[in-house]
C-alpha cells in the first residue's frame, strides 16, 4: 500500500474528456496534501500521444490494447483492477460519468476498497483524505474520511475547473507503456459502434438566449407558453432531463450531463431544480434567471436572479410585456 493517488483517464473518440482534468485537479490536491505522487492511468490503442495533455500528473501509465480502443465496461474494469493491484494506491479517482460509473463499483469490489460516489471536492484533513459529496439532487452535502487502505471515489464536475487540471507541471509527464495484465479475450460486453446524436431542429449550444423548462412545467401543454416566450425573445427552448425522458421535447434540447453544455447570454430556468447533472451544463451562462416555487432549490445557488413565483402565471405576463417593450423599440 502507498499514499499515492491515481486518476482513471476518460477518453472518447480521440479526445480526453474534461472530467479527466477535473479529476487531475482534485488528485493534485490530495497528492500534495498527502505528500505523495499523482498517477494518471490511460487506456487505449495507439493513444500514447494523449498523455502529453496529462501534465498535472507526476507520471502516466498507458495501457495499450486493441480491445481498449473504445470503452467497454468489461475490458476496462479488468484492466484497471489488474493494473492498480500492485502496489495499491491510497486513492483511485473515477469520473461520476457514463464510463466511470460503469467500472468504479466493480473495480472497488475487485480491490476490496471502500467506495464513495458523487464527490464534488476533496481535501486532506489532519493527514487523512476527506471527501465532500453532493447527494439528494444537490440538496444534501455528505462528507467524511476516505477509509484506507485504498478508497475508490467518483467525482462530479463543478468543484474544480478543468483548466486547473490541464496545466502542465513541467511539460509532458513520463509515460510507462504497458500491456493489459489480464487477457482481454472472452469479453462479455463488445463495442459495436457509435450512433450520432440526431441532428436537432435547433442547436441549443448556439442559441443566444435559452428559455429552459423543467419538471415545474407540469404538463406538456404548458410548453407552448415557453415556446411563445422564446419566440418573442428571439431564443430557443431547452430542457432538463425529466422533460426529455417524458418525451415532451427531443434529446437535442437537453442541457446537462448527458446533453449539451450551453453558455447563452441569458438562461431562463423555469421550474428547474438545478440538480448537479443539470448545473454542469449551464453554470457558465452569462445571466441566469431562475423561476421556481421551491425557494430551497439548488438552482438559486447558481442563478444570478430568481423569483419564487408560479411559472405558469409568470410566462404569459412576461411574454406580453416583452412584446410590448420590443414594440416600443426598446
Amino acid at each position: 500500500m502507498s499514499q499515492d493517488v491515481w486518476v482513471v483517464v476518460e477518453t472518447l473518440r480521440g479526445e480526453v474528456l474534461d472530467i479527466t482534468y477535473t479529476l487531475l485537479a482534485a488528485g493534485r490536491v490530495l497528492a500534495d496534501g498527502l505528500g505523495s505522487k499523482l498517477t494518471a492511468l490511460l487506456l487505449g490503442h495507439n493513444a500514447e500521444g494523449w498523455a502529453n495533455t496529462l501534465g498535472a500528473a507526476d507520471s502516466v501509465i498507458y495501457v495499450d490494447h486493441a480491445a481498449l480502443a473504445d470503452f467497454t465496461p468489461d475490458a476496462y474494469r479488468k484492466t484497471i483492477a489488474g493494473v492498480i493491484k500492485e502496489p495499491t494506491p491510497r486513492i483511485v479517482l473515477f469520473g461520476h460519468t457514463s464510463m466511470g460509473m460503469d467500472v468504479a463499483c466493480g473495480v472497488s469490489l475487485d480491490l476490496d476498497a471502500p467506495l464513495v460516489t458523487s464527490c464534488q471536492t476533496v481535501r486532506v484533513k489532519d493527514g487523512q483524505p476527506w471527501y465532500v459529496s453532493l447527494t439528494c439532487g444537490g440538496k444534501i452535502v455528505a462528507e467524511g474520511e476516505m477509509p484506507g487502505p485504498t478508497c475508490a471515489v467518483t467525482m462530479i464536475p463543478g468543484g474544480y475547473k478543468p483548466e486547473a487540471g490541464r496545466a502542465a507541471m513541467s511539460g509532458a509527464p513520463p509515460v510507462t507503456k504497458t500491456q493489459p495484465p489480464t487477457a482481454l479475450d472472452d469479453l462479455r460486453v463488445g463495442f459495436k459502434g457509435y450512433i450520432e446524436p440526431p441532428a436537432g431542429d435547433v442547436d441549443i449550444a448556439k442559441a443566444p438566449l435559452l428559455v429552459s423548462v423543467g419538471r415545474g412545467m407540469q404538463q406538456q401543454d404548458h410548453l407552448k407558453l415557453a415556446e411563445e416566450l422564446a419566440a418573442v425573445l428571439g431564443g430557443s427552448v431547452s430542457a432538463s432531463r425529466p422533460i426529455v425522458d417524458q418525451g415532451w421535447l427531443p434529446s437535442s434540447r437537453l442541457v446537462g450531463k448527458s446533453g449539451k453544455t450551453v453558455k447563452p447570454r441569458l438562461y431562463l430556468a423555469l421550474g428547474i431544480s438545478g440538480a448537479p447533472e443539470h448545473a454542469e451544463g449551464m453554470r457558465d451562462a452569462e445571466l441566469i434567471v431562475a423561476v421556481n416555487t421551491d425557494e430551497k432549490a439548488p438552482i438559486y445557488d447558481i442563478a444570478h436572479f430568481g423569483a419564487a413565483v408560479d411559472v405558469l402565471a409568470l410566462l404569459p405576463a412576461l411574454t406580453e410585456k416583452i412584446k410590448a417593450a420590443k414594440g416600443r423599440g426598446a
Binding site: 467506495l115 462528507e143 467524511g144 474520511e145 431562475a290 438559486y300 445557488d301 423569483a307
Partner: peptide, 22 residues
C-alpha cells in the same frame, strides 16, 4: 465496502440568486 458519513449538511452556497419579490 461503503465509506462512512461523518457529517451531513445543506450546501453552503458561495453565491445566491438575488430574489425578485412580488
Amino acid at each position: 465496502g461503503a465509506a462512512g458519513v461523518a457529517r451531513m449538511s445543506r450546501p453552503e452556497a458561495t453565491t445566491h440568486a438575488e430574489l425578485i419579490e412580488g
